[in-house]
């Protein structure tokens, strides 16, 4: 299990950076390049590794990722080679919250937002496809973590994560990294 690559995955704005932060705080080495610096969308940093975007053609970094955590959007999971073992922490968040947060990020980047309804349907289809595919992969173990639960009940969720990772995490340190004030774009009861 210690040789497995820990993949923190999900849709952008689903809590993947938070998961990376708490893994790092809890003592799990992370593979990041700090190219994307903190900004208003992610004040504590993105914990990204640019080379994941080219994983289809450049896999030379994968051996160095063994035993470490690396962040990767769900669409890139399909490109991972079958000769490594992966433990995937798949972040899940209310899709409306994800879309609102993505729209704000696109606005800050000066890029146009797509039709929210069409995009929501597309993401639903995408997530269904990803989870179905993951179930069929013998070299992938998956733990789905709800962002809202992680923020509101960090102790319980971090214990789940720790069990999944083979008790390698300092749970107290990891829990200290969860800042509920960063749970923005939260859907209110009236919106549900």
């Amino acid at each position: 299990m210690t040789d497995a690559i820990i993949i923190v995955s999900g849709l952008p704005r689903s809590g993947t950076s938070l998961m990376m932060q708490l893994l790092a705080a809890g003592g799990i080495p992370t593979l990041t390049d700090h190219i994307r610096t903190p900004d208003p969308d992610n004040p504590r940093g993105y914990y990204e590794f640019e080379r994941v975007k080219k994983v289809k053609t450049d896999r030379t970094w994968l051996p160095d990722a063994r035993g470490k955590a690396v962040k990767m959007v769900s669409q890139l999971l399909f490109d991972l080679p079958t000769d490594e073992n992966y433990r995937v922490l798949f972040m899940e968040r209310d899709l409306d919250e994800v879309l609102i947060s993505q729209e704000k990020m696109l606005a800050r980047l000066g890029r146009p937002a797509a039709n929210r309804h069409e995009l929501k349907q597309a993401f639903l289809w995408h997530l269904n496809r990803v989870h179905k595919w993951l179930l069929e992969q013998p070299n992938f173990a998956v733990l789905r973590v709800a962002y809202a639960d992680l923020v509101t009940h960090p102790t319980e969720q971090i214990a789940r994560v720790n069990a999944f990772l083979g008790e390698r995490l300092d749970e107290q340190q990891a829990a200290a990294a969860v800042d509920p004030t960063l749970y923005r774009n939260r859907k209110t009861r009236e919106e549900t």
Binding site: P12, L109, R111, H126
Partner: peptide
């Protein structure tokens, strides 16, 4: 509409800078 959905997802992820 699978191809359309795939295109939407790809465009959005690219726009956000998560894929190339």
């Amino acid at each position: 509409n699978i191809e359309e959905a795939e295109k939407h997802v790809t465009n959005q992820l690219r726009g956000l800078g998560y894929i190339e």
